[in-house]
């Protein structure tokens, strides 16, 4: 058991089923089989996109990308394979784009919801992410898994939104911690009460939602989405040490939030 790698599969593996969008859609409702892509690493993704999630690297097409590139000119409407659906969507087929939405909507929406902690904003940015996808889908070249590419595009949409709202992602310590003086206390003084009982999902979701925006952002990216500190540092344009420090503060804050109900229980 450890704290350094608390997440599931890293983003580079997100396309492999469980967290790929397909994984959460009941099999009977799936319109596209699982596994839109390969095991490309997040580094591939970072190198392959600009901030908007647009492919900028002229790397050789791989797996899906190759299939997509070769079939963009003549997408067969009867072919329901992932590559064919993507190729048709890239060629402007609205029905194919709807299929992509159906497969990936839960993943995109959940990511927005966790990063923002607000349903209305999450819906707005899910919409914005798919509109950006519609604008840019033709530029997807298969340098990375499609789901990974969409995941990064979504994160960039959210980050741009947060920047527009005035959250300075560069100066994390000052800007992301809205009240440094009232940040999570260190655990001195009287011995701490241990977290008691079990944490249910609703309680945990609420506690994560209650985190200040900056803490939540780092926590979601690292502990839920599986990004490494170097990747977060690159995304947010901060130091790796800063990312580690903010994550620790986020976890301490989360502990405080989760201890409150437990402490109330003890007081009763």
């Amino acid at each position: 058991m450890g704290l350094s790698n608390t997440a599931g599969p890293p983003p580079g593996d997100l396309a492999n089923g469980a967290l790929d969008g397909e994984g959460s859609v009941p099999p009977e409702n799936r319109t596209i089989p699982a596994g839109l892509a390969s095991n490309n690493t997040e580094q591939d993704l970072i190198a392959g996109q600009n901030e908007s999630g647009e492919a900028v690297k002229d790397a050789p097409a791989s797996d899906l990308g190759e299939a997509a590139a070769s079939s963009v000119s003549l997408p067969d409407p009867a072919d329901t394979s992932d590559a064919a659906v993507l190729a048709r969507a890239q060629a402007g087929d609205h029905h194919a784009f709807a299929q992509l939405y159906s497969v990936h909507k839960r993943r995109v929406y959940s990511l927005c919801l966790r990063m923002l902690g607000n349903v209305a904003e999450a819906e707005d940015l899910t919409q914005e992410s798919f509109l950006q996808l519609h604008r840019k889908i033709a530029t997807f070249r298969g340098d990375s898994a499609f789901s990974t590419w969409l995941h990064r595009l979504t994160i960039n949409v959210v980050l741009m939104h947060l920047r527009r709202k005035g959250l300075n992602l560069i100066s994390l310590d000052e800007a992301l911690d809205p009240s440094p003086d009232h940040g999570p206390a260190r655990s001195f003084g009287a011995p701490d009460l241990r977290l008691t009982g079990s944490i249910d999902r609703m309680t945990l979701e609420k506690a994560v939602e209650s985190l200040p925006a900056g803490y939540r952002l780092i926590f979601v990216l690292h502990d839920i989405e599986g990004y490494e500190h170097n990747e977060i540092a690159a995304l947010l344009d901060c130091s790796i040490g800063n990312s580690k420090s903010q994550l620790h503060k986020a976890r301490m804050k989360l502990r405080e939030a989760l201890r409150a109900p437990a402490d109330e229980e003890v007081a009763k």
């Binding site: 058991m1 608390t6 599931g8 009460l193 241990r194 839920i224 976890r251 989360l254 502990r255 989760l258």
Partner: peptide, 23 residues
Amino acid sequence: SLIRDLEYIADAVRQLMPIEEEP
């Protein structure tokens, strides 16, 4: 106790958070 709590929370996150929501 602190480390235990943090590990407990990390475990809970691993188990509970990947569930996705429907828009």
